[in-house]
């Protein structure tokens, strides 16, 4: 049996510098745009987009080696949104990074838009993998990591999983595969917001204990607060330094984070805010940011 152990050319140097103030500002903009685009679309998923926002901001503005002007660079880092229903956070992050103009966000879910209800790589080329059917993104990300190892390239593949999503059996097939082939260039982040459409994950189909499961599957596991930018940034740096295993960062988050009337409310999993609610939410986000 052939297994792979990644030998990196440069260690430590790969951890980019996280400018927390700057990242917080980007996170604010991303959250505001999530709300605006969902309000305009009149449908979509705010809860799981807002819970993942801080992680996305750290990835795109603190860690990932990507350039909007050279987005097909074979050496770029990849990101797969396995929990594809959180498409608004991906689109808002890509726009914030400069991949496309902010105005395009308002086409979300509309006929002819590049911004499909769930990410579509054929329509929007900055999306690395079409997702939306839960449980499939981790396999695709592992496939990207396989290519990186076969080609001896130094890129990382990041993948964002939902906590409800790990109820899918394919996740564990991919988990086993990634550890077996020592895909240390694969970094998963679990958006552990504890809620899924039908309710609390513990009531619907309890996936706990989560860290122990991933450890048992042979992954490098870290538990962090997914809204603490420094914790997120440091955890990614540590994950990059792991040389023999795939890594998962289990990020405890709050569904609907940043908007008090959405926080921890399962009802905001898949319904869009109206105009009045959006205004109120944006005012609150700005107040929290400035205060």
């Amino acid at each position: 049996m052939i297994t792979y152990s990644r030998q990196r050319k440069q260690l430590g140097g790969l951890g980019m510098k996280c400018e927390y103030q700057e990242i917080a500002k980007h996170a604010l903009n991303i959250r505001k745009n999530i709300l605006k685009m969902l309000c305009e679309a009149k449908s979509g998923h705010p809860g799981g987009s807002l819970s993942a926002t801080d992680i996305m901001a750290v990835l795109y503005f603190g860690h990932m080696n990507i350039d909007p002007k050279n987005y097909t660079d074979p050496n770029r880092d990849r990101f797969v949104l396995s929990k594809g229903h959180a498409a608004p956070v991906l689109y808002a992050t890509l726009a914030e990074k400069g991949f496309f103009p902010e105005e395009e966000l308002m086409t979300l879910r509309k006929l002819g838009s590049r911004l499909q209800g769930h990410p579509d790589m054929k329509k929007l080329p900055y999306v690395e993998m079409s997702t939306g059917s839960l449980g499939q993104g981790l396999s695709a990300a592992a496939g990207m990591a396989v290519s990186g190892i076969v080609d001896k390239k130094d890129y990382y593949t990041y993948v964002m999983l939902g906590d409800g999503e790990i109820q899918e059996g394919q996740i564990w097939e991919a988990a086993m595969f990634s550890a077996h082939y020592k895909l240390s260039n694969l970094i998963a982040i679990l958006d552990y917001n504890s809620l899924q459409i039908d309710g609390d994950i513990r009531d619907i189909m309890n996936p706990n204990p989560i860290p122990e499961k991933w450890e048992a599957f042979g992954w490098h596991v870290q538990n962090i607060d997914g809204h603490d930018l420094k914790q997120v940034c440091d955890a990614i740096t540590k994950a990059k330094e792991e040389k023999n295993k795939p890594s998962i960062i289990i990020a405890k988050t709050i569904k609907g984070k940043g908007v008090s009337f959405m926080e921890n409310k399962v009802g905001w999993h898949g319904s869009a805010p109206c105009e009045e609610q959006t205004e109120k939410a944006i005012a609150e986000l700005e107040e929290r940011y400035n205060g």
Binding site: S139, G143, Q170
Partner: peptide
């Protein structure tokens, strides 16, 4: 693990 088989193949093909 046939589901994963197809997913890994897809990821490989994106590169």
């Amino acid at each position: 693990a046939e589901g994963n088989l197809m997913g890994i193949a897809a990821g490989v093909a994106t590169t």
